[in-house]
Design a protein around this nucleic acid. Sequence first.
DNA 1: TCCACCTTATCGATAATATCGATTATAATA
DNA 2: TATTATAATCGATATTATCGATAAGGTGGA
Lengths: 305, 305
Amino acid sequence: MTPLPTLRQLQFFIALVRRESFSRAAEDCLVSQSTLSSAIKQLEGLLGQQLIDRSTRSFSLTPAGEEVVERAEAILAMSEDLSRAAKGVEPLTGAFRLGVIPTISPFVLPQATKLFQETYPRLQLYLREDLTAALADRLHSGLIDAALLAFPYDIRGIESIDLSEDPFWFACAPEHSMASRKSLKLKDLNRTELLLLEDGHCLREHAIEACKLRNTATVATFGGTSLFTLTQMARSGLGATLLPELAVRSGLAKSAGLVTIPFEGPVPVRKIGIAWRKGSGRREEAEAVAAIIGKVLAERHIFAS
Amino acid sequence: MTPLPTLRQLQFFIALVRRESFSRAAEDCLVSQSTLSSAIKQLEGLLGQQLIDRSTRSFSLTPAGEEVVERAEAILAMSEDLSRAAKGVEPLTGAFRLGVIPTISPFVLPQATKLFQETYPRLQLYLREDLTAALADRLHSGLIDAALLAFPYDIRGIESIDLSEDPFWFACAPEHSMASRKSLKLKDLNRTELLLLEDGHCLREHAIEACKLRNTATVATFGGTSLFTLTQMARSGLGATLLPELAVRSGLAKSAGLVTIPFEGPVPVRKIGIAWRKGSGRREEAEAVAAIIGKVLAERHIFAS
DNA sequence: TCCACCTTATCGATAATATCGATTATAATA
DNA sequence: TATTATAATCGATATTATCGATAAGGTGGA
């Protein structure tokens, strides 16, 4: 491919045409006259044509020079446009694909989507609800841009920021032996059969971990497929359960007719955060998403209750 | 003034996008991988934006990268135009990249390339066969210098000149009910099932348009992938078809054992012409190409028959 | 899980070049 | 012929582009 002139050379040339003088053009370009002079000569050599007519005292362009001026100006203008456009791609315009786990999704998204629309009207937000492992895969393969997850969760190759802590609450039917308690300690759980979500839901692991449920016998083998079915199972007396505060605040337990009891002492929690692929250049956007979700999470009562 | 990216950086970036790999792009640019890598990083620093997503094995651009690609291509194309225009080189010496659509290519190129060699011995003619839409893209991005296309076809930013009209002929197997006709009118087509090329081939659209095949029921849904397979399908009794005279004259129908029948009254045609990027300074060269192709088209019998 | 492999990033050394200040050459003018 | 303004040239220096080698990171297979 034929070697191209340098944008710098074109800038010099345009300045030269504008000022009609090597020395004045050099001033404009903040270089010495000799620099500009040699650069022009270089450009002429590259193009194989004389661009300015040095034969007369008055400044004039050769036909080739005339030919070049307009194009050079256009090219420079386009280059500036490119710079500006590249710099000005503000976050969250266009498509953004966000993955959310099922134990967060129903309690955050209704409010969040509304906020997204208001804050980033040019955003097209695609949502995908799936388990953490599946979302991690999709993050890696670039099928989603960020994910709203619960932590701790070890995924290599992703970065994340924490948004908030989400404490666990004890929830049981009013007939349950512990239903009248005002608060619980972790060790109280040892005596109780607990219903948890089925394998794969990180909420299950987080509950086991945070509540130190070493004694797996206390954990019912039949897992719920969603927090909604789980609360229904609890209501029908199959056992008590652990719900994230996020769900409690949204009225999940209440609407299922369950009693909720907080923990005291070391309160078991999971963390909620935003994760994105390391090196994806989505940090800024992920932080913007985090800000929105953070606002939603900060509302004490997600549903009026 | 904000510092501009270097054309070299843009070239590197475009090569990177094209090859989807740092190392392969570096080869194309005749520099080492480290050079290209750091140049890209430099460009990203300059623009203040990450341009490509380095986190996945699969190559993908960030939004900012998408934004930059097109502009960069345009800038580079214009820069090449500037070089060429300034140099004022005589037409058709050195490299010339010509795109041709598949429904013209096999019937013109064998003769044309010979003529090119004789007329412009210093010409290196690179040929690319592709569908109109793909060729239009390549015209815009400067990957080809001109294209031999069939018209009408609306592409912004290109100029073109018409070379000749290419009438459609009716072609069918000898056993076909219309095989004995001496000539046809357009309305005769309404009663016949027609095989056309698959979507994307402009010949299909041109046939439908020129022959007023409003009644889509007459057009077989299974499209041929080339005129050669199409004639084979017609020969085996799947239906009749419409062939451009260019193909008929080259003996395509005859060698496939098809009967060809001309139209009378309003004869349906497509136009053949040369297109080039507006402002590319290729008009003169395109006209020279047009002259060559025109000669080939003017020969009544392309193959002795 | 570990390991070999492929791709990209980084580093230090070197070559290329851009730039400068000083000087010289050129041409128009007094 | 001197004078003045302008541009070209030259040698020195600073910048940078580039390379080869190597490290780092991720992928896919044993």
